[in-house]
Structures are given as C-alpha cells and as structure tokens.
Computed example of a mutant assay.
Amino acid sequence: MDDLGYLEDPGDKLGMLDGQAFRAARVIVDIGMHLELPIPRDNPFGFHPGERWNPELGWEFLRAHCRVPDENLRFELNRYLGWPGQAPAYKVGERIWLQARDEAKARKGADFDLKEFHREALNLGSLGLDPFKAAMSRL
C-alpha cells in the first residue's frame, strides 16, 4: 500500500509498521513453540532467557510486544497452536512476492507497472509456496 501511495498519512504508515511488527512476533512465537526451542540467553528483550517456548510464554511475549486487544491476541495464539508453520509460511510468501516484484522491475525497466504486477499476482489465486514462486517469476 505504501508503494502505491496509500500511506501518505504518518499514522497510516505507523499502522503498517505496527502490523509488520505483529507478524514478526507471530513468527517468533510459532517457530519457538512448535520446535520447543530455548529462548536465547542474550535476547535483546531480556525475555525469559534460556527457558523453552511454550503457550504461556507465547502469550506473555505477544502481550508485551503487540498492540492488539487481548481477545484478538488469544485468537492468534490459539490459531498458531493448531496451525504450525502458518506464520513463517506467510513471511516466506511475502519475501517471494517482494523478490519477484524486484526482479520484474529490473527485467521490465520503464515498462514495469506496479498496479499491473499486483493485479497479475493476485489473479494467480491461492498457491503453495513452490508453485507460487514459479508463477511469480513469470510475471
């Protein structure tokens, strides 16, 4: 939305950045909980160093780092408990999208049309990550 000029207002841009921070926190919690990883001892938040991720720590982390109402956070936490890998897959898909966009810009130069790229990408519909990457590379 920012690239298309819809986030001129600083509050709108801040909302976008807040959403990105929320998605990053979900990735941390999803991976940590499902792999039962230890929280790094030297984490910059001083958050339970050395303890293993679990749903209670996931809840505490989300509440401390996300500006989302508790009922929404609880829903998100429960969703990640029942859908392992969803948050990281979303972020991988985002990276594929951005890489494909950069490659299309480089390939098409002055003929690149951002709105057209997004329209064609959205018209691909729902795809797994590998087919998505292959299809995006053809745009």
Rank of each mutant, 00 (worst) to 15 (best):
D3N: 13
F75H: 08
G32P: 04
E116I: 03
E76R: 03
F47V: 00
A100Y: 10
L98C: 05
R41S: 08
F132S: 14
L7M: 13
L62H: 02
L114Y: 04
E36M: 05
L122I: 10
E103N: 13
G128H: 10
R138N: 08
P10W: 05
P55F: 03
L57Y: 04
L7K: 14
F61S: 01
F47I: 00
D3W: 07
N72A: 14
E120M: 02
G46H: 03
D113L: 08
H65M: 02
R52N: 14
G19F: 12
Y6H: 08
D130Y: 11
M136L: 07
R95H: 11
D130F: 10
P84A: 05
L124F: 06
E76I: 14
G85A: 13
N123E: 12
R107Y: 02
M16C: 04
P84R: 07
D42F: 07
K91A: 09
K108P: 03
G11N: 06
G11V: 09
Q86P: 07
E116M: 11
G46Q: 09
E51W: 11
R107Q: 01
P88N: 02
R52L: 14
W59N: 05
E116G: 14
R79Y: 12
K133V: 06
P44F: 11
A64C: 06
P88Y: 15
F47H: 02
N123H: 12
L98M: 04
L57Q: 06
A135M: 06
N72T: 12
P88W: 13
A25R: 01
I96L: 13
R63H: 00
D12Q: 08
L139M: 03
G82N: 10
R79L: 11
G46E: 05
L14P: 03
A89F: 01
G82L: 15
P49F: 10
I96E: 15
H48C: 15
D12Y: 03
M136T: 04
H65E: 01
G11T: 01
Q20T: 06
V68L: 15
W97T: 05
G109H: 07
S137A: 09
V68P: 03
F22D: 05
